[in-house]
Structures are given as C-alpha cells and as structure tokens.
C-alpha cells in the first residue's frame, strides 16, 4: 500500500496548515475533511495537480469501456 503523509504546521496563534503528500484523488479530500473535523473551521482549501492524477486514470478507463 502506498505511503501517505500529512505535513501539519501549527502557528504560534494556533492556525493549522496541513498538506497531504503522496495522496492522490479523493483520498486527499477525505484527509482534509478529517482534519477539519478534528481542528475546527476551514478557512481555505487548495487542490493541486496530484489530486487530479487518479481522476485522469479513471477517465481513461471509462473511455476504454466506451470503445467496447
């Protein structure tokens, strides 16, 4: 199973910034949701290219089935 990591920074005023590493697709959102439930109010969320990697693979599979 792939290694999933979270990099969490807690500022001196308590603000939490968390970054997922090696986590692709919707699992990113699951981890972000989990942290939001643990900590409190979500101020912002940014999705970067790694999030879309798994989604692209799923789309390719759908296309393959579409050719059958």
């Amino acid at each position: 199973m792939a290694k999933e990591e979270l990099e969490i920074e807690i500022s001196p005023s308590g603000k939490v910034t968390a970054r997922t590493l090696g986590v692709k697709g919707p699992r990113c959102l699951e981890l972000a949701d989990l942290l939001a439930r643990i900590v409190g109010r979500e101020e912002s969320r940014t999705l970067t290219h790694e999030y879309y990697e798994t989604e692209r693979q799923v789309t390719d599979q759908v296309d393959l089935y579409g050719h059958r």
Binding site: E42, R45, T46
Partner: peptide
C-alpha cells in the same frame, strides 16, 4: 503536492 487546507481551531 496535492491538497493544502488551512484551519482555525475551535476549542470544544
């Protein structure tokens, strides 16, 4: 990089 989330703690 994948997801970056910024959170403000609520003390409960």
């Amino acid at each position: 990089m994948s997801t970056v989330v910024v959170l403000a703690p609520i003390i409960v």
